[in-house]
């Protein structure tokens, strides 16, 4: 099959020799860069979307993991590729934080954002042994104890859940570091540590804590979203309980380097939309407990830009931004 395609492409080349731009995009394999490791949630989303885009466009879509540097390496690889539509990537929320931290000059403006394909709101989770049964009780206790009594974990220093926690504390008129943040290498180690008694709160997405919630080891007290989540109908929002209007969600998007030709961009956006709406993607996301969210092109860029501004604000107040 591959050979036939190659031969066909080659034949096409010969026939169209002389007319330079006659080749229609895409005519060779597309590389899809995932800035996170094989096996993680972002990798799974990338591989699944890649398979569906491949079916839609008719050329192989090869998933390539470029890991390290808390996402800086992979995001740089996407942004620095030629904007010819043959390199796309999964852009994650870290793009809205790393430049505030002074790790890179790269911002969302260096990308052509094709679509947002997923979003998971943050939550407030505590160990089942903690005795807290509502987020009000937890907040009461946090407020009454001296700063630093409570510890939280679930992501690296300055990572999304660190910012999420700081934003929530600010919205409750507390200092952003009233709860000490203990950096961890992701939500799973943070949750494990909480169950082992190492920390008190994990403000990561509820999807990441699902198995521990099911096992009655972890209690989900609240979701940091405007509305309750479909997968966790019993977990109230912050607004319902403490009255805080703070929301935060981690999203994943498909993006290309800035400067894509318009026709290529349209074609890719449509292919991503078909992939998003495919049965395989929809059921996968529901089964994994990941939140579905769709925003295309300019809408997606607006969401990314708003988060960028909001995170910058919180990170400056929390002392997480570089001067």
């Amino acid at each position: 099959m591959q050979f036939v395609k190659t031969a066909a492409a080659l034949g096409g080349l010969l026939i169209l020799a002389g007319t330079v731009s006659a080749q229609e995009y895409p005519e060779r394999p597309i590389q899809l860069i995932v800035p996170w490791g094989a096996g993680g949630g972002t990798d799974a989303v990338g591989r699944l979307l890649g398979a569906e885009i491949q079916r839609e466009l008719g050329v192989p879509v090869n998933v390539v993991n470029r890991t390290g540097g808390s996402g800086v390496v992979g995001h740089s690889a996407i942004a620095n590729a030629d904007p010819d539509g043959y390199t796309i990537g999964i852009m994650t929320i870290e793009i809205d934080m790393m430049h505030w931290q002074g790790l890179t000059e790269l911002t969302y403006e260096d990308f052509d954002i094709l679509a947002i394909v997923n979003a998971d709101p943050g939550g407030v989770m505590v160990s089942a042994e903690s005795g807290f049964d509502s987020v009000e009780a937890l907040l009461e206790s946090i407020k009454s104890e001296p700063a630093g009594t409570y510890k939280a974990s679930g992501t690296g220093q300055g990572g999304i859940w660190h910012v999420g926690l700081a934003g929530w504390l600010l919205s409750e008129d507390l200092a952003p570091d009233h709860v000490t943040f203990v950096p961890s290498q992701g939500a799973a180690p943070g949750l494990t540590d909480m169950v082992a008694g190492g920390v008190d709160i994990v403000p990561s997405s509820l999807a990441e804590g699902r198995s521990m919630i099911d096992a009655n080891r972890v209690v989900a007290l609240a979701t940091m979203s405007a509305e309750r989540q479909d997968a966790f109908p019993d977990v109230p929002t912050l607004a319902e309980t403490t009255g805080s209007d703070w929301t935060v969600a981690v999203w994943r998007s498909v993006a290309a380097p800035d400067g894509l030709p318009d026709d290529v961009k349209t074609k890719l956006m449509d292919a991503v939309e078909v992939a998003y709406n495919s049965d395989a993607y929809q059921t996968f996301m529901a089964d994994r407990g990941f939140g579905l969210r769709w925003a295309k092109g300019d809408d997606a860029t607006e969401i990314v830009a708003n988060d960028d501004a909001a995170f910058g604000e919180v990170m400056k107040q929390a002392g997480l931004a570089a001067e």
Partner: peptide
């Protein structure tokens, strides 16, 4: 690299690749 608890770049000499550390 960058993968340390403080999330601070160390010995990266401005290189993005070195932020990923020594694999």
């Amino acid at each position: 690299g960058l993968e340390n608890p403080a999330g601070a770049p160390r010995y990266t000499m401005g290189s993005v690749e070195l932020m990923g550390g020594v694999q």
